[in-house]
Nucleic acid binder design. Structure first.
Lengths: 126, 126
DNA sequence: GTGGGGGTTGGAGTGTGCTCGAAGTCAAGC
DNA sequence: GCTTGACTTCGAGCACACTCCAACCCCCAC
């Protein structure tokens, strides 16, 4: 039985879907909280690190720029007392994502109508 | 009364939300159908060009890479007979966009739950 | 103690999609 | 006929987010 599971960078890459290159890049760029190291200097990711990676991956996947993720990470690293600014970053992002998803849904509907026009002429797609 | 309204590149940029730079870039890169020119060589965009720009802007905004838009434009320029391939491009894109929007919606929901956690502690957002 | 497979760093390279600058052309107004 | 301003082309430059390389280190099995 293990006290805390510690994963190597390769295992973490495997589990998160990021590459080891990207994990190092994120850390260098200030997107990570402090990643623990083994005595030999190798990264050892724990449960909480995986959770953090999942969060920033969600932010990145929904289009938050690296620089905003970095700012958010800075605030989390700074500790309690700046929750209002963290919240502001998240809420602003949420609003931007909602707006973009709605716009994209409209564009998608238009593309689907275009497809319907082609299908009205010759039935080949589906 | 005008037979066909012709717009300059500046007017077209204004109406489409693209820049004149981008309009030229798209044309150079093979994304446009044939854009008519004035005797002096200036671009004169017509109704149909605006419609085309609207379509490719929808494709681009929903994440279709330039190279796929170019391929689609090639097919349209080639004329009738290749509707099946055009349809395939559009359908494949539609499927990709649907999948991405669903994934992003899930990420958004997770971010909203994160926001709710902050709000449970201190009410500052909204 | 040697070879191999993992890890480390710093820095350079890549792909995508614009974005801009330089130098030139053209038409209209004064 | 000269200035002004909007256009033209070609090519370079830029921002973003990785992606990769070289050189080195460390540990374990043989």
């Amino acid at each position: 039985m293990e006290l805390t599971t510690e994963l190597t960078i390769a295992e973490t890459a495997e589990r998160t879907g990021l590459t080891a290159h990207t994990l190092r890049y994120y850390e260098r760029d200030g997107l990570m909280l402090d990643v623990p190291r083994s005595t030999s200097g190798h990264r050892r990711y724990r449960e909480g690190d995986l959770g953090w990676i999942e969060l920033i991956t969600r932010l990145r996947t929904t289009g938050m720029p690296i620089r905003d993720v970095r700012r958010y990470a800075q605030l989390v690293r700074a500790g309690e007392g700046n929750e209002a600014e963290r919240l502001e970053i998240l809420c602003r992002h949420r609003d931007a994502v909602r707006a973009r998803l709605e716009a994209e849904a409209r564009h998608l509907a238009a593309i689907e109508r275009k497809i319907a026009v082609y299908l009205g002429e010759a039935d080949t797609c589906h």
